[in-house]
Computed example of a mutant assay.
Amino acid sequence: MTSAAQDDDYWRAPGADKRQVKELRAALEQRARSGQPMTGFQLKGAGLAGIDLVNHGSHHGFILREADLYRADLQNAHLFALDLRGSSLMKADLRHANLHCADLRDCNLLGIRLDGARLDNVIWDRQLLQERKGRELYHRGNVAAALELFQEAEETYRNLRLHLERAGLFEQAGMFFHREMVVRRLQMPRYSWQRLLSWLVDLFSGYGEKPLNVVLFSLGLIGLCGLLYFLVGVNQGDHRLGLDLDQGLLDNLGDLLDCLYFSVVTFTTLGYGDISPHGLARPLAAFEAFVGSFTMALFVVVFVKKMTR
Results as ranks from 00 to 15, higher is better:
Phe170Met: 07
Gln127Met: 13
Met307Asp: 04
Met90Leu: 09
Gln36Tyr: 11
Met181Lys: 15
Ala153Leu: 02
Ser34Gly: 09
Leu212Thr: 08
Ala72Ile: 02
Asn252Trp: 12
Gly134Tyr: 07
Phe170Thr: 08
Asn213Cys: 12
Leu250Phe: 15
Gln6Leu: 15
Tyr10Gln: 00
Leu114Arg: 05
Phe204Tyr: 01
Phe267Gly: 01
Tyr207Phe: 15
Leu241Gln: 09
Pro283Thr: 06
Glu209Thr: 15
Arg185Lys: 10
Asn235Leu: 14
Gln30Gly: 11
Glu66Thr: 02
His96Met: 09
Leu227Ser: 14
Glu209Met: 15
Thr2Cys: 00
Asp258Val: 07
His239Cys: 06
Pro37Ala: 13
Leu221Arg: 02
Tyr70Ser: 07
Leu270Gly: 01
Leu228Thr: 09
Arg105Ala: 06
Glu136Lys: 11
Leu128Lys: 01
Thr266Val: 12
Leu84Asp: 04
Gln236Arg: 14
Met181Phe: 03
Asp68Glu: 15
Glu165Gly: 12
Gly141Thr: 07
Val215Met: 11
Ile123Asp: 03
Ile51Glu: 01
Asn213Leu: 14
Gln36Cys: 03
Leu228Gln: 13
Ala173Leu: 04
Ala5Trp: 11
Gly220Met: 10
Leu270Ala: 11
Tyr261Lys: 07
Ile112Glu: 01
Tyr261Pro: 00
Pro14Leu: 09
Gly271Ser: 14
Asp17Ser: 08
Gly134Ala: 06
Ala285Leu: 11
Lys44Asp: 10
Ala286Asp: 15
Glu66Phe: 12
Thr268Asn: 05
Ile63Met: 08
Gly111Cys: 11
Asn55Tyr: 05
Gln127Ile: 01
Thr39Gly: 00
Ala49Arg: 08
Gly47Lys: 13
Lys133His: 12
Leu53Trp: 09
Met1Leu: 04
Glu180Trp: 06
Leu228Met: 12
Gly116Ala: 11
His139Asp: 11
Leu200Glu: 00
Gly233Tyr: 09
Lys210Thr: 08
Thr266Phe: 05
Trp11Ser: 00
His139Ala: 14
Trp193Phe: 07
Leu82His: 00
Asp106Asn: 11
Phe62Val: 07
Asp258Arg: 14
Leu84Cys: 10
Arg25Ala: 14
Leu256Ser: 02
Lys210Cys: 05
Arg190Tyr: 13
Val291Pro: 01
